[in-house]
Design a protein around this nucleic acid. Structure first.
Lengths: 138, 138
DNA sequence: CTTGCTCCTGTAGTCACTACAGGATGCATA
DNA sequence: TATGCATCCTGTAGTGACTACAGGAGCAAG
């Protein structure tokens, strides 16, 4: 069998776009498996780590929380993860995305209308400031 | 002239819904004016502080960053703030809200489609996991 | 064997708060 | 006046998800 490629932390960082300090942080908090070390104490990664770290990065990019990432990884890593459980996490995440979209849509129309109302007025009261001054009707 | 109402920090907290510790924090970082003190060293607020803190809270609720809140406040407080400058900050904020909405919409359809594709399959590969495994096409 | 890059650990900084310890104040009641 | 209790004070440290730095060690090439 082939001996796996030896990848130093800097190289792993370059390949995945993840900060070196962040890689060590991920290891500390259990998001990335602890790699073996050289006799001198340096971390030695393999292509599996490249994939796993890419997986983590991608999940974070897609807005999964670190807790969710940990949950997915605890299901056995990207390859063996139980489909239905991962799907459930993703579905939950999707719900939150949709809720956030609604919030933002409301906020968008409120802000847009208010800014619009303000426009042109050089006068007395400012609609935007009034908006902020209201107790809580947003 | 009327002597202004004397409000203790706990009462201010109750009236505005802002945590006592957070009120002191706001004072430290310059988001809320430093109030006078009693001879014993206790903070004494007035109705102006109630309004100002409500203003800050409202702005945060609407998603303005602490930096933006500081910027608005530095324009002279809620009452005297220059309308056009506040409007500009709000407009900028609105742009960010819209950008975020677009991001979320993309993510929403990607997630929804992926989850949908996964459904029913008890088999081989999981669409959701595959999504996370891809390098960066989201 | 020295140069220079990469890597190591441990600690501390970031932001926007939140929480706690240990002690002082202030007000009402006995 | 004394006591009791709620509220308040400062200072420090914790949160989460990183990021940054200091001071030292590993390692490959010249």
């Amino acid at each position: 069998m082939r001996v796996e490629e030896s990848i130093a932390i800097g190289e792993l960082s370059r390949r995945t776009g993840v900060n070196i300090e962040t890689i060590r942080y991920f290891e500390r908090v259990g998001v990335l498996a602890t790699p073996p070390r050289t006799s001198g104490g340096r971390r030695v990664y393999g292509t599996g780590h490249v994939r796993a770290l890419g997986f983590v990065r991608r999940a974070r990019e897609l807005g999964f929380s670190p807790a969710e990432v940990r949950a997915i990884l605890s299901l056995g890593g990207s390859a063996q993860a139980s489909c239905s459980e991962v799907r459930e996490i993703a579905a939950h995440h999707l719900e939150r995305v949709r809720a956030k979209m609604e919030d933002l849509a409301q906020l968008e129309s409120l802000l847009a209308a208010t800014i619009d109302r303000c426009e042109g007025d050089g006068a007395a009261s400012c609609a935007v400031i009034d908006l902020l001054d209201q107790p809580s009707s947003g």
